[in-house]
Simulated scan of single mutants.
Amino acid sequence: MSATARKTAPLPSDIRAMKGGAPIVSLTAYTTPMAQIMDAHCDFVLVGDSVGMVLHGLPSTTLVTMDMMIMHGRAVARGLDKAMLVIDMPFGSYEEGPAQAMRNAAQLMRETGAAAVKLEGGAHMAETIAFLTARGVPVMAHIGLTPQSVGTLGGYKVQGRGAAASALSEDARMVAEAGAFAVVIEKVPASLADRITADVAIPTIGIGASPGCDGQVLVVDDMLGLFTAFKPKFVKRYATLGTDGEAAIAAYAADVRARAFPAPEHTFADETPSA
């Protein structure tokens, strides 16, 4: 589906207006077929830089490039009609300053049809968020555990515990005041996520946060159970597609080796049967 044809998708301002109302539903997507499946059920779909680890087998999101985000962003856009498209800005595409962020955000939106970009960081990114939003780029912020910074955060640890809670609250306040239309809060104590949700005027989107957030997002491959050996605490598996898929492949392999597949109904005759 082309960007010009997607007339029913909400705008960032519509997502912002959902603050305190019906919970906002979101999932990540990286391919057209997956986007088509979730389109009718999600308010926005996120093309996350998690694509690097989920689909490309990379060890971290820091290795994801602009070209990768554009390619997967275009694929997801083709599968959406009703859900808003948001795309992650990859590591190294915005940290130098507002001007660099503007160039790359404009490219991502122009080449994918995304309605908004998401970038990681709290108070230190407020100037960049303000710069982008003043120039027509809707920004979704991301605080708490920011995967692009796990090297400096000491790994995939819960953020905002103890004395760190006040700093995380300040991050939320500053990105909201800078003009972000929503903020993802990842892997923080539920009580802190609830306080932030009550304190800021923009929707909070939780992932490993609290049911009290204004919305939720998960990596779709996690919630579908496509990974058999990896399950973060904050993920609820709604299916076991990894196990089911492996069993199906094993059955296929057995049929091929036993010459049970293809069967006669899967093959073609020498001549077309007469009418």
Score class of each variant (00 low, 15 high):
3 A>Y: 01
7 K>E: 08
9 A>E: 01
10 P>V: 05
11 L>V: 04
11 L>H: 13
12 P>T: 06
13 S>Y: 00
14 D>R: 03
31 T>D: 14
34 M>H: 03
36 Q>T: 14
38 M>H: 07
57 G>M: 10
57 G>E: 04
59 P>H: 05
70 I>N: 01
79 G>K: 09
82 K>L: 10
89 M>A: 03
94 Y>I: 04
94 Y>D: 05
104 N>R: 00
107 Q>T: 15
120 E>S: 05
120 E>C: 02
121 G>R: 03
122 G>H: 02
122 G>Y: 02
124 H>N: 11
125 M>W: 02
126 A>Q: 06
126 A>Y: 06
128 T>M: 11
128 T>S: 11
129 I>W: 05
141 A>G: 11
142 H>Q: 08
143 I>N: 02
147 P>K: 05
147 P>H: 06
153 L>S: 04
156 Y>E: 15
157 K>T: 15
159 Q>T: 03
160 G>C: 09
163 A>V: 15
165 A>Q: 02
170 E>Q: 13
171 D>L: 05
172 A>L: 12
178 A>F: 07
183 V>E: 04
194 D>A: 15
201 A>D: 12
205 I>A: 02
209 A>V: 06
210 S>A: 12
211 P>I: 13
214 D>E: 15
215 G>M: 10
216 Q>Y: 02
223 M>C: 13
230 F>M: 15
232 P>N: 13
233 K>G: 11
234 F>C: 08
234 F>K: 01
236 K>D: 08
236 K>W: 06
238 Y>L: 13
240 T>A: 14
245 G>E: 07
252 Y>K: 06
253 A>I: 15
254 A>V: 03
254 A>G: 02
256 V>G: 05
259 R>C: 05
260 A>V: 04
265 E>I: 11
